[in-house]
């Protein structure tokens, strides 16, 4: 704030003001285009309260019989997808590190960027007809889209390490493979496993959604309950999902913090 007083007064509108105005105009145009009127916005809170009242009380019997198995399936999909992605991404992360494999790294980075570009659900749209409706398609979709991100993050970890020990192993007559084993892997493993756990947390959310296209899990259950306006049953889905995700986040987050200490 003191800086402003020492500067000469700005001529016309400042840079920030222009950007803000541009965003405001853009917003109004968009709102108009999708019929989001001020009246509709003002009406919204009352509407939400009305709808929310339908959600009470949650049908916990439905929760126990239908939602819980579907949630478990979502966890299984996320776990399997993460395991597959972790196994595939570990060698790829090493190959994708510029500092270790300057020639191959570019190719690996290109592949991982492509895999990252596909949201899980678009992959699932292709896997469902290939392997049939169900959780297997979901796990494949989750696995492949996770490989991209885990490879990228893993390569970044590898690129950030101290390369001194790598040269030391080679100076002792060790091969490149042994240099990876004794100088690279011990340095990067805690961070890489932490990334696996973080990806598992994200995959729980992703797999919860996949049911929408028939790839198993809790998403399909929520879609059906809402489609037939069974709001008490939908409430059971939401409650159980929030609970399970919170618990998994806590366990996984705690483990990550211990790993990185």
């Amino acid at each position: 704030m003191t800086a402003r007083s020492t500067l000469p007064p700005a001529a016309g509108m400042g840079w920030a003001t222009q950007v803000t105005l541009f965003i405001a105009v853009l917003f109004l145009v968009c709102a108009w285009a999708i019929d989001l009127t001020p009246a509709a916005l003002a009406n919204l809170p009352r509407q939400m309260v009305t709808v929310l009242s339908f959600f009470y009380p949650a049908d916990m019997e439905y929760g126990a019989t239908r939602v819980w198995p579907a949630l478990l399936e979502s966890i299984q999909i996320a776990w399997m997808g993460t395991i597959v992605a972790a196994m595939l991404s570990l060698p790829l992360a090493l190959l994708g590190a510029r500092t270790l494999f300057p020639r191959i790294a570019r190719l690996v980075k290109l592949i991982s960027a492509t895999a990252r570009a596909f949201p899980e659900i678009l992959l699932a749209i292709y896997f469902v007809p290939i392997v049939g409706l169900g959780a297997f398609a979901g796990a494949l979709a989750i696995g492949i889209s996770s490989v991209g991100m885990l490879t990228k993050l893993g390569s970044e970890v590898v690129e950030s390490i101290d390369m001194g020990p790598v040269e030391a192993v080679q100076a002792a007559g060790g091969s490149r493979l042994l240099a990876l084993r004794y100088a690279v892997v011990p340095q990067v493993m805690p961070e890489i496993v932490a990334h696996w756990l973080f990806r598992f947390e994200l995959n729980i959310r992703a797999s919860a959604v996949l049911g929408v296209v028939g790839a198993g899990g809790v998403g399909g259950v929520l879609l059906n309950t809402l489609r037939y306006r069974h709001f008490e049953k939908a409430a059971a889905v939401l409650l159980l999902t929030i609970l399970v995700v919170l618990i998994i986040d806590m366990v996984s987050g705690g483990t990550r913090r211990r790993l990185l200490r």
Partner: peptide, 11 residues
């Protein structure tokens, strides 16, 4: 943060 984007969309 616990609920995925598509759940909010369904709601």
């Amino acid at each position: 943060r616990t609920l995925p984007d598509l759940f909010w969309a369904m709601l």
